[in-house]
Simulated assay, not measured.
Amino acid sequence: MGSTQARIAIDAMGGDHAPAEIVAGALRAQEELGVKILLVGDPEEVGAAVRKHTSASPLEIIPAEGTIEMGEEPLSALRRKPKASINVAMDLVKRKEADAVVSAGHSGAVMAAALLRLGRLKGIDRPAIGAVLPTLIAGKPVIILDVGANVDCRPKFLEQFAFMGTVYSQYVLGIETPKVGLLNIGEESSKGNELALRTHQLLQKNPQIPFVGNAEGRDVLSGNFDVIVCDGFVGNVLLKFAEAVGEVALQILREELPQGVRGKIGTSVLKPNLRRIKQRMDHAEHGGGLLLGVDGVCIISHGSSQAPTIFNAVRLAREAIDNRVLDRIQSRYKEDSQTSAVSGQQDG
């Protein structure tokens, strides 16, 4: 994008703590990340939340009416509420008035709105939510996809997830040749169910995917893999379990620090270390998941997101924009298709 300021549309009405925490995170993001924030939601509610922080609103508010509630069926609710905040935010991206959408609202509604209003990237059958998690190797994250967009998958879908994860890992995470793994119950190629067996074969044959084999559950956060693919059912369970383990570990750490004067002195000495530990383990530091495969940058954050998570979600969106992730996926997919066509002709 060069020096052009990224424009991020934020669904200010989505999430358990909307709009107060969403606004707080948005204000910090615009101030520190050099982006332009468009807050989408009820002007009175959003405006009141902004005024709690500053008298002169530095953020543009885009009017919307209502939101999609967690108990609502996404597709019917989106059609019934065309002016809901997530619909309005997606329309801004569709009209090129924003470069990305961030929402902590109903994740199913966010994905459905993205598909209905933005459409899929050419050649991608199903979008996937990619979550970036820390590993045992400092500074070496892993992207896991899908973590919730597709409960049931075909082998071809998982192959496309691996392809998109490879591009993201290369251009956003800076890994020249990512190691791609397929989540399975064993390292051997003969292990797993029918989906795993057939996907393994596809990944092995695809020259655009640096596939290194199966990854067991214990390998996910080891740092031995850069991209791990699985269906959305397994991925969502895995993601929520990993987040819970992180929260438990942080809580145990707090409880086990010495109490009293000794504890205060020890804690002050360890403060920089504790801050780094929190940054590596706390899911709020990662912002949410990037919905890869739709024709627009879309970040899906946790429903419980507070200001730090929204700030990091905006950072994640800006990284995807700056590194032209969608363009690279599309251009690499075209190259892959052309290579496959030539190979098919030669085989014929």
Rank of each mutant, 00 (worst) to 15 (best):
A162F: 01
K52C: 13
K205I: 08
H286A: 10
H17W: 01
L121A: 06
E73T: 12
M111H: 03
G344C: 07
D347F: 15
M164F: 10
G130F: 06
A24T: 05
A215R: 06
M13S: 05
N150S: 03
D99P: 09
A20T: 12
M111K: 00
G130Q: 07
I61D: 02
K205M: 13
G232Q: 03
P155C: 01
S85F: 12
L250C: 09
N150Q: 06
I277K: 05
V248Y: 14
L33I: 03
G119S: 00
K271R: 15
A98F: 04
L326D: 14
K240I: 05
G344E: 14
G303I: 01
S343F: 09
V245K: 06
V234P: 03
R262M: 12
G15T: 02
H17R: 08
F225E: 05
G287W: 08
L173N: 10
A149P: 06
L116F: 14
K240M: 09
I143Y: 07
S222F: 04
S222T: 00
P74W: 02
A100I: 04
T339E: 15
E335M: 11
A320S: 15
G123E: 03
Q251G: 14
C230M: 13
N273R: 15
L38T: 05
L253D: 09
H200W: 15
T166P: 11
N193P: 05
S169Q: 05
I185C: 12
A114G: 02
I37W: 07
P134E: 09
S268F: 10
L78P: 03
G223L: 10
V229F: 05
L203Y: 04
Q170P: 12
V342E: 13
G266E: 12
V237N: 13
A114D: 04
V248R: 10
I310A: 00
C230L: 11
I10M: 09
S305L: 02
S337T: 15
Q208T: 05
K96Y: 13
R154Y: 02
